[in-house]
């Protein structure tokens, strides 16, 4: 039990929680992006992929519960860290100078996390829970219109879902927050669990930025394609 106690209460332990839960979520984000990008391979491909996911309910829910746990851990720990860190430095310097060697992403992990969090809630309600009141086009994604032979037509849902510019804009914003978050988090997590050295520190930093950019392009390409009419 002492392992868990140490993880939960100590400053280094909290870094481990942030890093490991972050890594799990990052893996999901990468996988999710690869899955979504199948939309460019045609209606059948993505629908088959969606069906594959949907038809394994047990595994799907296991993964969902796991990811949700990770998310809660990540969130809860970050909130604790935020309060602790503010308490650790109650007074700052005159004129609030920018912390040295910080980047936009590293300074604003919390802010981008919040943007991302808001987006995530909307995103899940939008596509997973399929609340029709918030998709701004007034269509019911769970209705018959979005079914082909009793299976869900995810392709159509995506095209319709992104057809409203405001929804797409919010999506792009959310993904933007996510990718900034990743650009710091994806290399920071290696430092946190102690896999880092002078030699590959710079490489990891660069790799994280490149990963974030690729993910951003990947995710954003879908709504952009929908809005520009490339995907119909």
């Amino acid at each position: 039990m002492s392992v868990i106690k140490n993880l939960y209460y100590s400053s280094v332990g909290k870094k481990y929680i942030m890093a490991i839960s972050g890594l799990c979520l990052l893996t999901f984000v990468i996988g999710h992006s690869l899955g979504n990008l199948q939309v460019f391979m045609g209606k059948e491909t993505i629908n088959r992929y969606a069906h594959f996911l949907q038809s394994n309910k047990e595994i799907l829910w296991l993964v969902r519960i796991f990811l949700f746990t990770m998310l809660v851990l990540h969130l809860w720990t970050s909130i604790r860290l935020w309060f602790e860190n503010r308490a650790a430095r109650p007074i700052g310097y005159f004129g609030n100078p920018t912390p040295m060697s910080s980047t936009f992403a590293s300074r604003n992990m919390m802010f981008m996390g919040i943007v991302l969090g808001c987006f995530l809630v909307y995103h899940i309600l939008h596509y997973t829970v399929q609340v029709s009141d918030i998709n701004l086009i007034g269509k019911d994604f769970s209705g018959a219109e979005f079914q082909i032979k009793g299976q869900r037509d995810v392709y159509k849902m995506m095209i319709n879902g992104f057809s409203h510019p405001l929804v797409s804009l919010f999506y792009i914003l959310g993904v933007g927050g996510l990718c900034f978050h990743i650009s710091h988090g994806a290399h920071s997590l290696f430092q946190s669990v102690g896999i880092n050295s002078q030699y590959y520190h710079r490489i990891l930093e660069k790799a994280a930025t490149i990963l974030a950019i690729i993910l951003f392009i990947g995710y954003v390409s879908i709504p952009v394609s929908v809005l520009t009419g490339i995907l119909k």
Binding site: L81, N85, A87, A88, S101, S102, S106, S188, Q191
Partner: peptide, 10 residues
């Protein structure tokens, strides 16, 4: 009562 590291590098 020191704070936590967020890997900024200052």
């Amino acid at each position: 009562g020191f704070g936590n590291c967020t890997n900024i590098g200052s």
